[in-house]
């Protein structure tokens, strides 16, 4: 997938664990792990909003487009 979710970096910066974040935004650890490992096909705006709120960031800081992966897709 050409869109990557930079959850690792943000979790490290905010000193949050995956479990804590999952509890705060109200989705399962399994789903958050799907997002973190870039296996997700789509993200709901409600989830994106919850992530930005808890991580105190903009969507652009969370999502990244990598052109090399787009060529492979």
């Amino acid at each position: 997938m050409a869109i990557r979710v930079k959850l690792d970096h943000l979790l490290l910066d905010r000193r949050l664990s995956l479990t804590d974040l999952a509890d705060r935004i109200g989705i399962t650890i399994a789903n958050l792990s799907v997002l973190k490992t870039n296996k997700a096909r789509a993200i709901r705006f409600s989830t994106l909003e919850a992530l930005c709120r808890e991580l105190n960031c903009q969507p652009g800081e969370l999502l990244e487009w990598t052109p090399d992966d787009a060529d492979c897709d």
Partner: peptide, 8 residues
């Protein structure tokens, strides 16, 4: 169904 299951 597969797409929906991979929508977070």
């Amino acid at each position: 169904d597969e797409e929906q299951s991979l929508t977070v």
